[in-house]
């Protein structure tokens, strides 16, 4: 039986009827039409589907949309404001922290969480923080550089 949920998605409130088994990632992509968060492995390993729910980074393939009822959901589309990239987005661009770009939305969303909790992380802390996000192109070095650059910009 469908249930009504109300979610504030990137600052905009919306109400939808969903099946309880609908995963949050499918709600975001198929119901709300925001395709920035990606479906990679769909088994809570790759992190490409990472979004923030009430400020907490989650793998949205491993959460039901009904669990987000009444909450604020932030996706990669909600980061830029007035056409200006978020500091973390800019850092990924400047440091070439991506090649194909598939993992990038998840990488950026988890970076946001890492820096919110630890504004000046060491390289080891950055790598520990990125453990739940897989990239098959870059070898991670430029991603780590991007997180460092973003930290320097936001911590300054």
């Amino acid at each position: 039986m469908k249930r009504e949920i109300s979610v504030t998605l990137n600052g905009k409130p919306r109400t939808d009827e969903v099946e309880p088994r609908l995963l949050l990632i499918h709600y975001i992509r198929d119901v709300a039409g925001l395709t920035g968060a990606h479906v990679g492995c769909e088994t809570s390993i790759c992190g490409a589907c990472t979004v923030a729910v009430d400020g907490i980074a989650v793998k949205s393939c491993t959460m039901f949309a009904v669990q987000a009822d009444g909450k604020n959901v932030l996706t990669i589309e909600g980061l830029a404001s007035n056409g200006n990239l978020h500091t973390i987005q800019e850092a990924f661009w400047n440091e070439h922290g991506l090649q194909c770009g598939f993992c990038t939305p998840g990488m950026i969303m988890v970076t946001k969480q890492i820096l919110e909790r630890n504004p000046n992380p060491t390289e080891e802390e950055i790598r520990h923080g990125l453990e739940g996000n897989l990239c098959r192109c870059t070898g991670y070095q430029h991603i780590v550089n991007a997180v460092k650059t973003a930290a320097a910009k936001t911590g300054a």
Partner: peptide, 9 residues
């Protein structure tokens, strides 16, 4: 345990 996102949930 797991990773940041798993430890969050």
């Amino acid at each position: 345990i797991g990773d940041v996102q798993v430890r969050n949930m």
